[in-house]
Amino acid sequence: MCGIVGLHLRNPELHPRLGELLTDMLCEMQDRGADSAGVAVYGDPTWTPPGQGAVSLLELDLPAAEVEAAIGTALGVPVAVRAVDATLVVTVPVPSEELLAAARAAYPDALVAGFGADLAVLKGVGAPRDLAASWGLAGAQGWQGVGHTRMATESAVDPSGCHPYAVGPDQCLVHNGSFSNHATIRRELRAAGVEFDSENDTEVGARFVAKALADGKDVEVALKELCATFDGFYTLLVSNRDSFAVVRDAIACKPAVIAETDDWVAMASEYRALAGLPGVENARIWEPEPEVVYAWTR
């Protein structure tokens, strides 16, 4: 089943409340998927200080100080590592791609949960309410957040199978549904040199979109090409640090609702995840149409 939530804040006065609002939205979706969860937070000044590249690492059971020393020595600059439950968020004043290369060289077996300027990605196995509390998500700040509660159907319940899939710079994708032809597309992407971290069908969609964006296409074109290429039933939310986009398949059987005010744009699998947002009683609220890409830019 799975649950998706996303919140894009237009009003800077709400930035200090991003984590609080995102936590409420995520926890409302726990009934749709209670085996694991993940979030992507854009702009938290503690997790990802402004002007620094960031990489979120999982499956790396090492002290933060040891990781700081290893990556700092490789880059020749001071490195900060913040342990957010099981995720190590590494930040350094170099481009995120340079930091990513150093992190992968130092720890080739670690799972890269996400990378980019201003982006922290946290994932975990367990009930979303418990995970949100362990992350301290309610205290996060920023201008945009994406979350996912998972009911596993396509792959193992482990960190590599959790959403969001943040496989391109500043990018993430969350998905409710299933892609029936993901194995074929995975083979095609691998033949083109794309590497994978999991057997999850969602990662195939994320890698497809990331490749399209890397090839110079915008998010609307990338998602239209995804709709033309992938078979199955799905609702997708795709974001980067400056945009937020939603699309559903041609049948649109997976639930989704969008709400918009002058202060924010939000999306969730069900309205109850939006009901606590400030000013929602005055929001424009609608169900996204099949294969129509809805996108907003900061």
Results as ranks from 00 to 15, higher is better:
G3E: 00
V5H: 00
G6S: 11
H8T: 06
P16F: 01
L18N: 05
E20N: 12
L21W: 00
T23F: 04
T23D: 11
M25K: 01
M25C: 08
L26Q: 02
L26Y: 00
A37S: 10
A37M: 12
V39E: 00
V41A: 07
Y42S: 03
Y42P: 00
G43H: 04
G53A: 06
A54E: 02
L62D: 10
L62G: 06
A69N: 12
A69E: 15
A69F: 12
A70Q: 03
I71G: 12
I71N: 05
T73C: 13
A74Y: 08
A86P: 02
A86G: 04
A86K: 09
L88P: 02
L88W: 04
V89P: 01
V90Q: 01
P93I: 00
P95T: 10
E97Y: 06
E98D: 13
L99A: 05
A103E: 10
Y107F: 15
G114T: 06
L122Y: 07
K123V: 06
V125Q: 14
A127C: 14
A127Y: 07
P128A: 12
R129T: 05
R129A: 13
W135T: 01
L137N: 10
G139S: 15
Q144G: 12
V146S: 03
G147M: 03
G147W: 07
T149F: 05
T149A: 09
R150W: 09
M151S: 11
M151V: 13
E154I: 13
S155C: 15
P159L: 08
S160C: 14
C162H: 10
V167F: 08
P169A: 15
P169S: 13
V174W: 02
G177A: 07
H182D: 12
A183R: 15
T184W: 15
R186S: 04
R186K: 13
R187M: 11
L189C: 12
R190G: 13
A191C: 10
E195P: 01
D197T: 15
E199G: 10
D201K: 07
V204F: 11
G205N: 01
A206R: 00
A206P: 03
K211L: 13
A214K: 08
G216D: 08
E220H: 03
V221G: 01
V221R: 14
C227R: 11
C227H: 08
T229G: 11
D231K: 13
G232V: 05
G232I: 14
T235P: 02
A245G: 08
A245K: 05
V246S: 02
V246M: 06
V246G: 02
A250V: 09
A250H: 15
I251K: 13
C253A: 12
I258H: 02
E260L: 02
E260F: 07
D262Q: 12
D263W: 11
W264L: 03
W264P: 00
W264G: 01
V265P: 05
Y271G: 11
Y271K: 05
R272Q: 05
L274N: 07
A275K: 12
V280P: 03
E281M: 07
A283I: 04
W286R: 02
E287R: 13
P290T: 13
V292M: 06
A295F: 06
A295M: 00
A295W: 08
